[in-house]
Simulated scan of single mutants.
Amino acid sequence: MVRVPSPALSAAVLSGLAVLFMGVLLSGCSGQASAASPSAVSGDTPVRVRLAPVVVEEVTRPIRASGALAGKQEVRLSTKVGGVVQTVAIDEGQKARRGQVLAALDLSEIGPQVAQAREAREKAARDLERVKKLHADQVATLAQLQDATTGYEVADAAWRAASFNQRQATVVAPSDGRILKRMVEPGEVVSPGQPLFLFASTEGGWVVRVGLADRDVVRVKEGDAAEVTLDAYPGRAFRARVSEVASAATPGVGTAEVELALELGRPGGDGQGGSEAPPRLLSGLSAKAVVTPSERQSVRLVPVEALLEGDGEVASVFTLAEDGRTARRQRVRVAFLSAGDGRAALSEGPGAGARVITEGVAFLRDGQSVTVVEASSGGATSRR
């Protein structure tokens, strides 16, 4: 048998279900409202920020490059004539003194040529003296005297050429220096002009040769200051000066070579006040250089903290609008970063007098309301 609920009970059940349904519905609506409230509040609540002025200054933009250490005077030593190498008197890496014999060819072929030229010269000299006496006695004609004079001059020139070739068969050190590379052994047959040694003179000092892009090389002049660091001596800096600037770009590379002369002989030239021992330098050591051009340029300086979303040279900053309560986003172009004082130099961006936001940048959007926080001696004060 089926029991039919009373009308009062049915009304009570229906009323309870209605109340439960409304509670669930209101709970869902309140959840949606609470989820949306942070975004609504973030759009209306001002963000606390700090400002810094845009400063326009005349500065020098440093140029960074890498290169290799080399002797100022590096030459390939060779002989003018070919022949068989008889002796090699020095090894690779050894020091050499000016005039020291480094290698010599066998003179078995060159020696007789010099002797033959000497004998021919002496015979021509005797013939000239005899013709001079005969011409004085009016026995020889003027033409005969002129022919004898010409014969002597030709023989003398041949003797001097043979003597010169004989001297060039010996390789000597042109100055004090070091053998960087030895490319010959005794008994080898060498051709005229074939390099036998790579020689670095210590009298010309040490240089670092770097390749600069066209936009950088036009700002560099001879005499500009530079600082060089070597991978072989980490943490040690060497003073240098621009000694040469190429007038043409290197074919196939597109960069121009700039030569930096190290000032090792000056006090503090090693960047340590001269307290450390002179470094042992080798040709080919990897080097990094920072050149400071004497030319100055006007740039706009802002703290690095103000930059946002940098992509190469392009970035953004937020500036304070004229109403003093709104942040405006502006695109800028970064010329370089100054590691010494933590500022960025802008070639394009807000002008002098503008104020950029340095703190709270990550929470801003274009048109965002802001509250400027200023530091004071008694603590932090705020102004809308």
Rank of each mutant, 00 (worst) to 15 (best):
G351K: 12
V2C: 06
V304T: 09
I90N: 04
V314H: 06
V253W: 11
V258M: 02
R64F: 13
A18I: 14
E227V: 09
G193K: 07
H135R: 11
D311L: 05
V55G: 04
M22I: 15
Q32G: 08
D176H: 04
A18H: 14
T319H: 00
W206N: 00
S175Q: 11
R239I: 04
R266S: 10
Q94N: 13
P279T: 04
V220E: 04
R331A: 13
P192V: 03
L308F: 08
Q32V: 15
A327M: 02
R331D: 09
V49F: 01
K181E: 08
E109S: 13
K123M: 08
D366Y: 01
R329V: 00
L196H: 00
S10N: 15
R178P: 01
L142S: 15
T202A: 06
A240E: 05
Q297V: 12
T45R: 15
Q272K: 11
R61C: 11
K95N: 15
R328E: 00
R167G: 14
A352R: 12
E322K: 05
E185Y: 09
V59Q: 07
A115G: 11
P267I: 06
A246W: 02
P350S: 09
A321G: 12
T141I: 08
E359V: 05
A18M: 13
S39E: 15
P279G: 04
A169L: 01
P192C: 03
D106I: 05
E153L: 12
